[in-house]
Amino acid sequence: MRILIIEDELKMASYLKKGLTEASFTVEIAANGKDGLFLALHENFDLIVLDVMLPELDGLEVLKRLRMEKQIPVLLLTARDTVEDKVAGLESGADDYLSKPFAYAEFLARIRSLIRRAPRIVSEVLSVGDLEIDLVKRRSRRGGARIDLTAQEFALLQLLAERQGEVLTRTFVTSQIWDMNFDSDTNVVDVAVKRLRAKIDNPFENKLLHTVRGMGYVLEDRT
């Protein structure tokens, strides 16, 4: 999923980008309001992190112009924390508001909450190579043969399929499947992936579920 950070404090922007990248997000940065608005209007993002005090075009003006064209979830970041400032931001179209300084854990939790709340348009049937995942009937098939999965295995497969081609870290997978932040050294994800791989990959010549050493897992057809 793609996130745009519009922030003129480069140290802050780099810090947030590093954390979000480690959480399996793809991140772009704009250092002023004018460039940020251009990117927001001409590229596709799943969420925007927007500072209020920006050069060239302030954050509230960026937000107002953006809302005339698109309805993308927006998290406002600002050093202003009065009730009046928060009301102004929310009435301008922000979906959430976070005052500086803030803890990164809270920032990430708010990002994930906004993404979960945002409406998503997905196909009823996802396909990766000859693997098909029916999201309505909660069934999966490969090469025409039905594959029986547990509820947890299906949830993991759906997560990987919806983001096929993207490397998902173990931390991201645990937060999405178990709704918890496990220690990064835990093998809970490795065990779950091993069980899923035994069903969707091991009986077949073409492997779809790949391990990316030091990063995580990706589901894709590499033929």
Rank of each mutant, 00 (worst) to 15 (best):
L209W: 11
I6R: 00
T171M: 13
R197P: 07
T26R: 03
G89P: 01
P119L: 06
K34L: 10
G216V: 08
G129W: 05
F204V: 07
V83R: 02
T211C: 12
A103T: 01
M180P: 01
R65L: 04
E205F: 05
V191K: 07
T169N: 15
S92V: 01
R141E: 12
F107L: 11
A13D: 04
E91V: 09
G33H: 04
P101K: 08
D58E: 10
D221Y: 07
L66G: 08
V193W: 04
E220T: 12
G59Y: 00
T171H: 11
R170W: 07
E7A: 02
I29A: 00
R2K: 14
R142K: 13
D81M: 08
E106V: 06
D201E: 12
D148H: 11
V83S: 04
L156S: 09
L90T: 00
T21K: 14
Y15P: 04
T21D: 14
S140Q: 01
L75I: 08
A23M: 09
L219V: 03
T78E: 10
A118T: 06
A103W: 00
E28S: 13
D95N: 15
R65K: 11
E153H: 00
T186Y: 09
T82I: 08
R141T: 06
G165F: 00
E28H: 12
W178R: 09
D81N: 13
L108D: 05
L126P: 12
G19T: 13
S175N: 09
A145G: 12
F25I: 03
Y217D: 10
R65H: 06
V173C: 01
Q158W: 14
L66P: 07
P73I: 00
K64L: 10
L63Y: 06
E84W: 02
N202R: 12
G165P: 00
F172D: 00
A198E: 12
R2M: 05
I111V: 12
L39H: 11
V83D: 03
E91L: 07
E153F: 01
Y97A: 05
L37W: 11
K194G: 10
V74F: 03
E7I: 03
I29Q: 02
D85V: 05
G144C: 15
L219P: 02
T186K: 13
F172M: 05
H210G: 09
S99W: 02
A145L: 15
R112N: 10
A31K: 06
I200P: 03
L10E: 15
Q164Y: 11
R170Y: 09
S92N: 06
F25H: 07
R146D: 08
E69H: 14
Y15T: 07
R142N: 14
R213F: 07
M215R: 13
E7M: 00
E166I: 05
R222K: 14
G129M: 06
K18A: 11
L157K: 01
R142T: 10
E220F: 06
S14V: 05
K18D: 12
R141A: 07
M1D: 01
E106R: 10
Y104L: 15
V27K: 02
D148V: 15
G214R: 09
E84I: 06
D85A: 10
T223V: 15
A192R: 02
D46R: 06
I115R: 01
E9M: 13
Y97D: 04
K17D: 00
I115Y: 03
